[in-house]
């Protein structure tokens, strides 16, 4: 019994090693994408072949946009975000990202019960409770993970909202109309990602540095990350993307040539609690 189990593990290990293909193999596979489309081969190796885990993949053939130089695409069918969490080594790396969002969106600083959070730091075990592993790699355990609204393709908050104050735009962004919201907080109960905050008190006196470019909110309304819809409209990248030094990629999930699709093609990624059928648009490379 013991022997056969060991044998199995050996074979499994060898197979796994085989799956971790060399870079040449990956290159070869990618070159095929340049060819005219062919009928899909049902016996082709699954996409898992291109998966590489552990270190960042730098793929010269498909460079992602440099957010410092190029503006974001003007439109998309489904905006999405890919967070390369490997690039966040400590809270220090994530802090500028969170601060950029807080500052631009006039997020007040309040006590823990009443706090407003659009993007914030979480531990792996809280962000991915369904992907828990008993013995998580030490480095991942302490890695700071950014949590934010997933801009779900099938958002439960939009379904729950009785006034359409929260709604899904044609480009996939789930937005809030702060002026229509009645503050019933049904959306907060509906969101399975804890992405929504309620203004339990007037936020205005607690905004450290006021940004006149973005509206402040009144007490009694719900708010959350808006994928920087106001910046995209002006041809700017979302604030967190810009502040992330390349760790966060942003683009159209429906466009196979988009930056997000390029990054997803080459890296193993996960999403938060997919079993709920919400189809989150924020992907995490672990």
């Amino acid at each position: 019994m013991k022997n056969s189990r060991r044998k199995f593990l050996k074979i499994a290990g060898a197979t796994a090693a085989g799956l971790g293909l060399s870079t040449t193999a990956i290159k070869a596979l990618e070159s095929t994408t340049a060819e005219p489309p062919r009928a899909p081969d049902p016996h082709a190796a699954p996409a898992v072949d291109t998966i590489k885990m552990g270190k960042p993949v730098i793929d010269e053939t498909a460079p992602v946009a440099d957010v410092k130089k190029n503006p974001p695409p003007s439109k998309a069918k489904q905006w999405a975000m890919v967070v390369d969490t490997r690039q966040f080594k400590s809270s220090k790396d994530l802090e500028p990202v969170v601060n950029a969002c807080n500052k631009i969106h006039n997020i007040p600083s309040l006590n823990k019960k009443h706090e407003i959070k659009w993007i914030w730091e979480e531990e792996y075990k809280h962000l991915f409770p369904s992907l828990e592993t008993k013995f998580l790699a030490e480095e991942v355990k302490h890695r700071p993970f950014p949590a934010l609204c997933n801009h779900c393709e099938n958002p439960p908050c939009v379904r729950a909202c009785p006034t359409q104050a929260t709604f899904k735009r044609k480009d996939g962004i789930v937005l809030m109309d702060f002026h229509r919201c009645i503050g019933c907080r049904f959306c907060m109960a509906a969101c399975p990602y804890g992405a929504r905050s309620f203004n339990y008190v007037d936020p205005r006196p607690n905004i450290e540095e006021f940004n006149p470019q973005f509206p402040t909110r009144t007490k009694g309304v719900v708010e959350k990350c808006n994928f920087c819809a106001e910046r995209l409209a002006k041809g700017q990248w979302p604030a967190c993307v810009e502040a992330s030094n390349g760790a966060i990629t942003f683009g159209d999930l429906d466009d196979p040539d988009s930056d997000v699709r390029k990054v997803l093609k080459n890296n193993f990624s996960v999403r938060r609690n997919v079993s709920l059928g919400t189809e989150p648009s924020v992907y995490y490379i672990i």
């Binding site: 909202c161 006034t163 359409q164 919201c181 009645i182 309620f198």
Partner: peptide, 24 residues
């Protein structure tokens, strides 16, 4: 329900923007 609303003055939005997919 009224005292639970953050913006009770806007309560009528419930019927001004009837939303069939909301259980509320």
């Amino acid at each position: 329900v009224m005292v639970d609303l953050g913006q009770p003055a806007r309560a009528l939005n419930l019927w001004l923007h009837p939303t069939l997919h909301s259980v509320l």
